[in-house]
Design a protein around this nucleic acid. Sequence first.
RNA 1: GCACCCGUAGCUCAAUGGAUAGAGCGACUGACUUCGAAUCAGUAGGUUCCGGGUUCAAGUCCUGGCGGGUGCGCCA
Length: 589
Amino acid sequence: MMFDKERQATEEKIRSYCSQNDIPTPDEIKWMRIPFSGEWGISTSFFQAAAEEARSGKKVVVPERAQEIAAAIAQQLGTPEGFSRVEAVKGYVNLYFSAGDYSRRVIDDVLTMGADYGRGVDKAEQVMVEYSQPNTHKPIHVGHLRNMILGAAICNILEWAGYDVVRANYPGDSGLHVIKWIWNYQKNHAGEEPPEDKIRWMGDIYVEANRLLEENPDLEAEMREVFAQWEARDPDFMALYEKTHQWSREGFDIAYDALDIPFDIFYWQSELDQTGKDLVADLIAKEIAIDERPEGAVVIHLDEILGLEQEKYRVMVILRSDGTALYSTWDLALAPRKFSDYPDLVRSIYIVDVRQSLHLQQVYKTLEIMGYPWTDKLLHLPYEIVNLPGNVTMASREGTVVLLEDLLREAEQRARELVQEKNPELTEEQKHSVAKAVSLGAIKYPMLARDNTKIATFDWESALDFNGQAAPYIQYAHVRANSILKRMEGALPESQLPQHDLAPSEIELIDMISRMPEEIQHAADEFKTLRITNLAYNLARAFNDFYKQCPVLKAPPEVRAGRLRLVAAARQAIANTLGVLGILAPDVM
RNA sequence: GCACCCGUAGCUCAAUGGAUAGAGCGACUGACUUCGAAUCAGUAGGUUCCGGGUUCAAGUCCUGGCGGGUGCGCCA
């Protein structure tokens, strides 16, 4: 936070006044921003001190006493260096920054740091974030969007906050869904090559496989036999597996490329098959797991091992009765792998659907029982699912999905029509890139602008609605700021103290700009993208208000210079904030 | 049965335990010879699901209900 020095000096004065006057002082003086003012500053309250006095037997009415203390302290503080005035209101002491100094400091800071404004100091700590666990042989659909977009944004936030971030992908390229797909392909589509619309075609084969199995349960045994081909690494099977695997990877690339989602490392589930089985053998040897084969599976009775009376972790199956691996086998193997690849991780974050909470708790607990030293660094960051209207869950098995490419195409087309309508004189090239930036932003923003614990509903109407609290609104503010700077003749004026009384809308805008660094840190601490989407929107709104209220280019020269710098700072802050969210800030639209 | 999540304006959602609970959408009324109207200003809309408790202070924490969702031995 800015004004650290001044704040600390003030804290010292408060402490010494309190101890001299026998007023209880808290361990930590809590500062907040002053609400409801056209000015800005910080405040702290004295309710705790007053309450403590009341508890110790003094006859005081807490709110009144708090105000009394606040008034005395305000009196004592006078007007400290860096502040314009001090007041005591309703138990709070409010310290108002001197507007000129403050605004100059904020604006200079932004313009000096440029594209790095908002970044925290290097924490020299490494964290891994695992996100986007796409399954091969299934289509990527809108239900997967939240995970990808959330994961990428969390990574950005952590990176901006000063962490060294490892972005990990964990694709599911083994398991029953793969077997089902290949079984159906061999049986009903042998030799077929994918058409142009590869993703949809692969999805259809998967849906068909599930339908056939449902219609005729006798086929189950036949399908399971394909599992044996996988277990035996049968050459013909493996060749087909490789080929179809490649088709899926091409689909992933298209999606990641379109959404601009980056990764540092891919942990393929199939590569964990053997280590997973070895680990299971080890668990059996250590008598943590019970081998109930061939009648049953290999299981761990977690509650029993932990001596819990009430059921909590329940029973985890770690190997099927036929000896094949399942998700818990691979997940158990993956966690140690991450720490052997990156021994310095201070945190290993899993961005995974809330419905897998129990499963992940079981995995973490099992690893803890095994005695790994890093299990306290494992963190499941759950998020709620994206449903279709009527609370219908998207399931690729049933084909109740909106394919990602359909959404991207529709959104871009709609954005394209809007650009054409709003700004027909742009070049084709520009229209194309604007439509892309706007449509992607419109898709990403709502995914990040709601709490992870809240279920999202996908419907076409709101997905294609670019009005209101949405990315295009923020992008438009950036365009307006850019437009002013484009018309500015000559270079940006030098830093100066404001030569005029700042208007309320200027103050509000500077305030919003100044919040970016602390919001990044908070967002990183809480893993909340919502903080950044709120900031981005509030920044844009403050800018739009300023834009309306305050002429820049036509303002008198001394005012104009300061406002031009403010516009430049606002443009930078908006662009950086959108950047953290993975949303582009176009210059025109 | 056990566990987790949600409940705030007509709808979708905000609000580090702090001062007056805020936005968007929808509805209604206004503003483009003015730096770009994908904008702005205004009006209407609230027992923060209900009951207890903790606290100087509760939408926020604890507890008991109610309503909705999810998970719970071989899908991932």
